[in-house]
Every structure is written in structure tokens, then in C-alpha cells.
Design a protein around this nucleic acid. Structure first.
Length: 418
DNA sequence: TCTGGGGTCCTAGGACCC
DNA sequence: TCTGGGGTCCTAGGACCC
């Protein structure tokens, strides 16, 4: 069985831990520039304040009910998250930290999952002050649904989908839009076909689902039928893209303001790359006008470029970003948002190997693959990469794109210590 | 000049998640 | 007047290679 532990109203709960006078009082937490509501306590939810709602629309409710309003404090939330996650990691053999406030936990071999989860929940509440709900099911997707039920329909905050009868019954009560992996587009498409509950969804023809919703939709359907597709990812690899973007507090027409924003976002991206000891192979820059302002024609400028060689160098990244900005900036428009994305990230010290130079027969190639797998598993990341034929055939042209640790001698990788 | 299958890389766009 | 930020995965088409 797999459990999903999810902190209740996480940001709001964090604020409450450090200010007990807020107990039973409505709380909301706001996004950057205090624009949107991104977290609500139960009391705020029952006042009718919606998730993601802009503050000005909820102004009346907030003022009329003395709702406590906070700007985000990510240093605090990150710290509280670490405390909760380390308690989970202490009691379980394997956990996957899925987001700042959620973790999947391997419950294999636990005799009384509900009882165990109940104790865990109480311990976390006692030690950290954070309330959590725990849902348990045979797959990740069902654990997500169990968690949803635990939050909405139980007082204990624990729910376990431990029999086919129970699963069948619950799926009839869950609407398609509450299934993990089915968002607004797919759920309105499904409702158009009169598919309204999770139970309706699993009755669908699998080929039809594959065609309409890609392989991801099909996997979701099968997970609801207890076929495991999504394994616990206990050893998450590095980020594949890193993005830094912000809306402007005050909108701007000036290239100078955009330059400043893009420069500081690029500096931040380079820092994040160095923090994970990695380099990026391409960079993108985006700027946007205000989509809600119909006086301006909506404009979304986006342009990418590949680096000659992977880099995490601040100066190169800032320069590339500013060059891209020049290509997409249009005079006369009023901009609301700017961002920088660095992507196709490779480890700084990755060893890349071309095996076609030296290895001829299949058994040698097989044993090389096995050795590489072993090294990567023990490092917990892709330390060694065997390159595809496409890159190699042009290696003379693309030499700069390869890692500094590129080799054609497969014996080299055997020197790497695990 | 026309022909073919199988493969990788690159990019953009669309869906989803918290 | 005022509408977040940071990610993942999949698909599809074109360029290019053998």
C-alpha cells in the first residue's frame, strides 16, 4: 500500500504555529505583490474565499470578517516542511517528497495502515504543530483519492482504500475533476461526453482514452483500477529546467526596466544551477503584457537559444538573456511579467562516453550498460551517460556541447569510484 | 534524379501538478 | 485600480544522419 500525507492548509497552518492567537480564526496567505490568495485556513474557506482568487475580489469578505492576511514567507514554510518530512522519513523505509507539503510513503508490510497513520499524524501534530491528513491506497492515484476523502469526509483525517468494494463505492462519489492528473481541459471534455464520476471514467474504452488523453490519461485510468504505473520516486534526479520569473508590481513600457528584471532573473538562474552543481545547454527569455487588460493587445514574447557549451557562468547567461530580450521587446507595449528559463540541464561533472569506438559485440556492450547502471544507482543520479549515435556521428561539430569529461575510452568509466 | 527505413536531436506547444 | 511562481511529461514536425 502507498500512503499520501498532505499538510492541511499548509501555509496558513505555518503562520498559526507561530501565533497561537490565530487558532480558529480565518487566515489567508497572498502571492507575490499580494495579488492572489494562494492559501486559506478552513475558516477562510467556509467564508467562501476561493483558491487563486485575486485579493480585490475578496476584499469585502476579508474586511467584513476580520480575516488575517499574510504575505508569503517561504523561509518559514521551507523550514516547517523540512521538519514534517524528516519525521515521515524516520518512520518509513521509503518516502517521496512530492511537494512542499506532500509526501508519498511506502506502507508495504504494515499490518494496520489506518492505526499506524493515525499515530503518525498525532506525532507530527504534537512535534511540529502542523495538522496532516493521510490517505492510503494500492496506487498513488488511489492514495490521492483516499487523501481527498480523508480531508473532506472524515473527522480523523485518515482514510484507507483497502478493499475493492470500498474503492468501487468511493469512485462513484468522486468527480472526474478531482482525479489526480485530470485537469480543467480534460474534465470539461469528459463532462461533454457525460462522464462525470471516477467510476464513469474507469468504464471507458482504454483505446479511446489513449487517443483522447495520451498515455498519461490511460495510466491514470489503470491506476484507478489498481494497476501500478507511478512508482515511488525516492531518489529524485536533478531539475531539468530552472525558471525564475516575476510579475511587475507596477507595469512598465521601458526596455530599461525589462533589462533590469531579466538581468536579475538570469543571475538567480545561474545561482540555482551552481547550487545543484549543473550546467544548462539552452536559455529562454519571456516577457508578457497584461492578459487582463484589454486596452493593451495581449503579447507574449518568447525566444530560446542554445549555448555553444553547457554553462552556469553568470556573465554568459546574463549576456545571452539580454540578447534574447532585444529580439522580443516591442516598443509601445506595457509589460506585466518577465522571466528566464534555463534548460536541458546536465551535471557539471558528468562523464559522457561513446561506446562505438571500442566495443563491437553485444555482450561487451551489455556489460558496459550494467556497469553504468550500477554507478548511476550508487550515485543517485546520472553520473555517467552513454551517448546516442546521432550526437557521436557529428562529434567533430558538436564537441563543445559535450561534457568536459567526455571520453571514447570506456575503460575510463571503470575508474570512477562509486 | 529519385528512392527508403530507422534513428536522434531540437523546438514549440499543450496538458497537468502544487 | 488590483489577477502567482515554479515545475513535469507527452506529442509532433522538421533537420539531419546512416
Amino acid at each position: 500500500m502507498i500512503a499520501l500525507a498532505d499538510c492541511n492548509n499548509f501555509y496558513a497552518s505555518c503562520e498559526r504555529v507561530f501565533n497561537p492567537a490565530l487558532e480558529n480564526k480565518p487566515i489567508v496567505v497572498l502571492s507575490n505583490n499580494d495579488g492572489c490568495i494562494i492559501a486559506r485556513s478552513n475558516e477562510a474557506k467556509s467564508l467562501g474565499i476561493k483558491m487563486g482568487e485575486p485579493v480585490f475580489k475578496a476584499r469585502k469578505i476579508i474586511e467584513g470578517n476580520n480575516v488575517n492576511v499574510f504575505s508569503t514567507n517561504f523561509a518559514l514554510y521551507g523550514d516547517m516542511s523540512n521538519r514534517v518530512m524528516s519525521m515521515l522519513a524516520d518512520v518509513a523505509p521509503e518516502i517521496e517528497i512530492y511537494s512542499i507539503d506532500e509526501a508519498f510513503i511506502d506502507f508495504t508490510g504494515i499490518n494496520n495502515p489506518s492505526g499506524f497513520a493515525g499515530e503518525l499524524k498525532n506525532d507530527i501534530r504534537k512535534s511540529t504543530g502542523i495538522p496532516v491528513s493521510i490517505g492510503i491506497g494500492p496506487t498513488k492515484t488511489l492514495a490521492k483519492i483516499a487523501n481527498h476523502v480523508a480531508k473532506k469526509k472524515t473527522d480523523s483525517g485518515i482514510f484507507c482504500l483497502d478493499s475493492p468494494v470500498k474503492i468501487d463505492q468511493i469512485l462513484k462519489e468522486i468527480s472526474v475533476s478531482d482525479i489526480w492528473g485530470i485537469g480543467s481541459r480534460y474534465s470539461s471534455m469528459l463532462c461533454g461526453q457525460n462522464i462525470r464520476t471516477a467510476h464513469d471514467f474507469i468504464k471507458l474504452d482504454e483505446q479511446w482514452v489513449l487517443e483522447k488523453m495520451t498515455i498519461v490519461g490511460l495510466k491514470t485510468l489503470q491506476e484507478l483500477k489498481e494497476h501500478k504505473h507511478f512508482a515511488l520516486d525516492t531518489n529524485p534526479t536533478w531539475k531539468k529546467n530552472i525558471c525564475t520569473s516575476r510579475s511587475f508590481g507596477v507595469k512598465t513600457k521601458k526596455l530599461k526596466d525589462l533589462k533590469e528584471a531579466i538581468t536579475s532573473h538570469s543571475v538567480r538562474c545561474a545561482e540555482k544551477l551552481r547550487m545543484q552543481n549543473a550546467c544548462a545547454r539552452y536559455i529562454s527569455v519571456l516577457i508578457k503584457t497584461d492578459p487582463f487588460n484589454d486596452k493593451d493587445r495581449y503579447y507574449y514574447g518568447y525566444r530560446s537559444v542554445s549555448f555553444n557549451s553547457p554553462t552556469n557562468d553568470t556573465i554568459r547567461i546574463v549576456q545571452a538573456a539580454n540578447d534574447l530580450l532585444k529580439c522580443i521587446y516591442k516598443q509601445g507595449l506595457t509589460y506585466k511579467k518577465a522571466g528566464v528559463i534555463v534548460g536541458d540541464i546536465v551535471p557539471q561533472d558528468r562523464v559522457q562516453i561513446d561506446l562505438f569506438e571500442n566495443l563491437e559485440n553485444d555482450s561487451e556492450i551489455n556489460s558496459l550498460h550494467k556497469a553504468v547502471d550500477r554507478i548511476n544507482r550508487s550515485m543517485g543520479r546520472d553520473k555517467v551517460q552513454i551517448l546516442g549515435q546521432g550526437l557521436i556521428s557529428k562529434w567533430g561539430l558538436k564537441r563543445e556541447k559535450l561534457s568536459p569529461c567526455y571520453t571514447t575510452r570506456w575503460e575510463d568509466i571503470l575508474k570512477i569510484r562509486c
